[in-house]
Design a protein around this nucleic acid. Structure first.
Length: 292
DNA sequence: AACCAGGACACAA
DNA sequence: TTGTGTCATGGT
């Protein structure tokens, strides 16, 4: 019953848009497929007619962890039906219909977004790549002929010095990542415990961590815990709101917060991801080399 | 060569 | 409450 390959039937799933929309940073396009890590597992993903094909390095009996990560059981139509019926959302959804939210590991997601501040996605990928290569556990890929690295545990990072982290080109983000890693490694903060908290309590605990403000906390709430009312506002989404919704006057920060909370519905964070991806990739050529 | 990137933080007005 | 400087690093 063990297998190293599975076909996951799903419709309306744009794998390329999903893996390149700045929510996860370890997926690479190589040899007509996406390769990356899900937890401790190396995974190759391939978009196929009617679903996704997945390959792992060593046969497994249960694939629920991958379905959970990819969120293939989510009915996209149900989500899209809750979006506001306005022109910006129509544009954003038409631009990348099939864009999904992943369900990531909280620690990896938190650490990744601490490293994301005022960095372009390509650079975030580079920093995280160095971090994993130097401090992550070695993992077999594709039957063992190649080596990948798991994301470093909080304990391993806590054992690092700030200079070692700075050597991964993360600059001023190093002390925040280090302090947060040590708080989690010591047990002073329990990331798994946030799963059962309310959004507001979970956000409050995340914002209390060094290097974590409102925006990064909302990214973790959305991408790792599945709080889909979380609505991270970065420079791109701020630009989308400014240009598409408030072209004349600029709303105050609390006014804008009230707007996004009431206007985009129960899956506001999902809508946010469409706006983000639309603003970042409209007008550009598809970055994926050979796509049907 | 200036400018900017999925910000957070301390501090001023 | 809202505005400014600072913090690294690399690509356009």
């Amino acid at each position: 019953l063990h297998s190293s390959r599975i076909f996951i039937p799903v419709r309306d799933y744009d794998l390329a848009a999903t893996l390149q929309s700045g929510q996860a940073f370890r997926w690479r396009w190589t040899a007509h497929a996406w390769e990356g890590m899900v937890g401790r597992q190396w995974v190759r993903l391939c978009q196929q007619a009617g679903g996704l094909e997945a390959t792992v390095a060593e046969p497994v009996a249960n694939w629920s962890w991958l379905r959970d990560y990819l969120q293939t059981d989510v009915d996209l139509d149900d989500v899209l039906a809750t979006f506001p019926d306005d022109e910006p959302m129509r544009l954003a959804v038409r631009h990348a219909r099939g864009l999904r939210l992943l369900r990531q590991d909280p620690w990896e997601c938190l650490a990744s977004f601490i490293l994301s501040s005022t960095k372009r996605i390509a650079q975030i990928q580079q920093i995280i790549g160095l971090l994993c290569e130097r401090f992550g556990e070695r993992v077999a890929a594709e039957g063992g002929d190649r080596i990948w690295h798991a994301f470093p545990t909080p304990g391993r990072l806590a054992a690092c010095g700030e200079l070692e982290l700075r050597a991964c080109k993360m600059g001023f983000r190093a002390p925040g990542l280090l302090s947060t890693g040590r708080l989690i490694a010591s047990g002073a903060v329990d990331l798994d415990g946030l799963r059962r908290q309310s959004v507001d309590r979970a956000r409050a605990e995340l914002v209390a961590l060094p290097g974590v403000g409102r925006k990064i906390a909302d990214c973790v709430l959305l991408f790792a815990y599945g709080f889909e009312e979380a609505f991270p506002v970065d420079v791109w989404v701020a630009k989308a709101l400014r240009e598409l919704y408030f072209p004349r006057r600029k709303p105050s920060p609390p006014g804008l917060d009230r707007f996004v909370r009431t206007h985009f519905g129960p899956h506001a964070g999902f809508a946010q991801q469409y706006l983000f991806h639309y603003m970042r990739t409209r007008g550009k050529l598809d970055p994926q080399p050979d796509r049907a």
